[in-house]
Design a protein around this nucleic acid. Structure first.
Lengths: 260, 260
DNA sequence: CGACACTTTGAAGACGATCAACGCCGGTGG
DNA sequence: CCACCGGCGTTGATCGTCTTCAAAGTGTCG
């Protein structure tokens, strides 16, 4: 039995910030929950854009098929993230990607008219939406630059840091949240290249064995990755990593060295 | 002596569509005109974001300097285009690029608060802004994909088509609107690669000599470029090119073959 | 004429894609 | 219980493309 109202990870999204509980929950009521079993398509490339989506649970891959039979992954979205806000607002004819669940997922869907209407009548929501889309655009831009200026190994190292921050994993060790094939596609490289790259990263402060990732030397990672990035000082990801590490260090010292 | 009100290319921007002449001209009055001689910086990377800009005349290059001393051009904006709308709405700390005039330019600048306030109080404007930013984000995404999937030569060919559409040049022959160095940087390739590429394009329906570009065989260009692009059928640029060519053909026949 | 910015051309090298083979594992069916 | 299979990942060898470094050509402007 599913809850009528949305779970907290949706209600506390930045998109609904400053809206007041009542307004927010009213808005969320317009959404329809939809179960999406692993492997099922949410929508396909060129399908008409009919809804705006909130991911409540699970993981959705956005990808396009290139004429030569390859698949390029545009994004991998997980719970608490939105889909199609840009396609809705841009009034484009059809979906620009395919969307498929890479694990059993639940999405909340809203008709396109709802999104436009809400943006029109709730100025706070409109500003939140502007902020969300602008931020997305910025991330896309940074990624494009990374693709252009960083080597495959640097891209992977950068990605591992982001994983760690986004999923709140411990740098001391975590498991990849999805397959290497998907990650490689997400990073715009071939699986073989990705695989080879993992070995090389050992020399740069990251050890990967099977699905297990350990960040062994954050300073080395920073030197290797962030030095290649024109964003450098602004790199929020690496800043977050350093915070993580220092937190771990301090908590360890407070439990006086040896746990267990 | 400069006009107090904005010229038509600004007043008829999609951003102000549906606003009513009075509202629009009122809004535009809040802008301050600023002359920007060739080579001058409008703002620098990491500077605080203080304004939103409309380009009234001229051309502005947005670029970032990579740690290894290279410059990556993010965008080249000309009259009728906006700058920084995303940076303003994303509430980011500092500018994410440098902006420099590549020719004498005039911009209309608005304080960041003006943009946010206008979006809050004019829902039509907010929707236009959402649409603009979404569209930009989409273009960036498509470009990133192009960079990843197309060869240097295909990128250049694609770029020439876009030039032709954006500036309303004739495919029968036009001059590059800015330097090859800037174009190469814009396309994310080295000047040498760009230069070599131009020669090869002769085999694919585009002839370049000096600054002169002639699209000799549009069908060949389409086959060469669009076949590599997953957007394929949706490629509005190439559609626009075909329209251009057919218009020229029909006007030529209506003036009965030989002008001059 | 000479200085300088811009562009072209050549040769070498680095990097990632591609093709091919193999190892590993979980499931299915005899 | 074992044989077979398919999905997934690794590893090796080769190849094409783009970058890099170096040098020379073109144009403009004082």
């Amino acid at each position: 039995m599913l809850p009528i109202i949305a779970p907290d990870n949706v209600r506390f999204m930045p998109l609904f910030a400053g809206l007041g509980e009542h307004d927010r929950d009213m808005l969320l009521k317009s959404g329809r929950q939809r179960q999406l079993p692993r492997g099922h398509l949410l929508f396909a490339h060129t399908d008409p854009v009919t809804h705006f989506y909130l991911i409540m649970r699970g993981t959705v891959q956005l990808f396009r098929a290139t004429p030569d039979g390859h698949e390029k992954t545009i994004a991998v979205a997980t719970s608490g993230q939105t889909l199609c806000e840009d396609e809705v607002m841009d009034a484009c004819r059809g979906h620009r990607t395919n969307a498929v669940a890479v694990e059993d997922s639940t999405v909340l869907e809203f008709p396109v008219a709802w999104l436009k209407e809400t943006a029109k009548t709730h100025s706070t929501f409109a500003l939140n939406l502007l902020s969300l889309i602008s931020n997305r655009a910025h991330l896309a831009e940074v990624e494009a630059e990374h693709q252009a200026t960083m080597s495959a190994a640097q891209l992977v190292a950068c990605f591992m840091q982001r994983l760690c921050v986004l999923y709140d994993f411990s740098p001391k060790g975590f498991d990849l949240p999805y397959s290497k094939t998907l990650i490689a596609s997400r990073l715009g490289m071939e699986l073989e290249t990705f695989s080879r790259t993992l070995v090389k990263l050992r020399d740069h402060g990251i050890t990967i064995q099977g699905n297990r990732v350990v960040i062994t030397d954050l300073a080395r990672v920073a030197e290797y990755v962030c030095s290649a990035c024109s964003i450098s000082g602004e790199c929020t990801t690496h800043q977050a990593m350093e915070k993580k590490v220092s937190e771990i260090a301090s908590s360890k010292s407070s439990t006086s060295s040896k746990p267990i």
